[in-house]
Computed example of a mutant assay.
Amino acid sequence: MSDDETPAWRNPQLTLRRFSGLDRSGPPPPATLAGAPLNPWTIPNAIGLVRACGIPIFLYLSFTSGDGTDLTAAIIFALVAWGDQLDGMAARVTGQYSRLGAMLDPILDRVLIVSGVIVCFNYDLLLRWALAILVARELFMLAVGPVAVKRGVDLKINWPGRWSVWPLMMGIGFGLIDLRTLGSIGLLLGVALSLWATALYAVDARRQLADDTGSGDASPRAPSSST
């Protein structure tokens, strides 16, 4: 192999920590990077499609329940939320990584959380002020994220962003079955982690822009999904 050749990427050894998603060391799979083919026909993407179909069913059952605490709707919400972990495990076991999956997963997580927030806010199941902060944060990321990427900022997901998803999902899930105290605890923890993640994104973006200004490099980077 010549000096300018790049060795082929290999799927890392599947340890328990990597299988569960706790170990995310190493470079991302090339198939998930910007510019790679979407490659929709994979097992993880099939799981993602089922998750996507579950969200409107959850909303329908919730808004026809009368009080937002339909048990079937809550179970569907929990299954769609857990499906995020399932499709990640499927990708790591099968090696079927794809650009579509890398884009689809964070979108589905956000849509599910926002759907749960809408139900909980409408039926006053959780603290409305905390739900409003969460929505404001999501709108901020949706508005600022694309602008930052266009300016060459690489928004890499951080650990507070990863950690925030599960307390938010659990908090909303508890709210949907009228366990409001547990739901509020999960919601507040998730909101705090989300705001922490947002602050870290801002610091990292400012550093990257300062580095680019100092080096005169204004070339855009490949965007990464963020939470």
Score class of each variant (00 low, 15 high):
G88M: 06
G183H: 00
L134K: 02
G21D: 11
N122K: 11
G88D: 07
L79E: 05
L168S: 06
L38N: 10
G214F: 10
D212P: 11
I157A: 14
G101R: 05
G145P: 01
S225E: 14
G35L: 04
P223G: 13
F174G: 05
L100G: 04
W163P: 09
P37C: 03
I157V: 15
A81D: 05
A205N: 05
S62Y: 03
R206D: 15
A210G: 09
W196M: 14
S164L: 09
I172Y: 05
T6D: 11
S98P: 06
G116P: 04
P146I: 07
D87F: 03
G171I: 07
L49N: 06
V111C: 01
V93E: 04
A8T: 14
L187P: 11
W196E: 12
V203M: 11
G66Q: 13
A81T: 05
G68P: 03
T15Y: 10
D204P: 02
E138T: 05
D70E: 15
S224M: 15
P12C: 13
D124L: 13
P56D: 06
L61E: 02
P146F: 14
L200Q: 14
T6V: 11
M103C: 11
V111D: 01
P44Y: 01
S2F: 12
T94Q: 10
F121N: 09
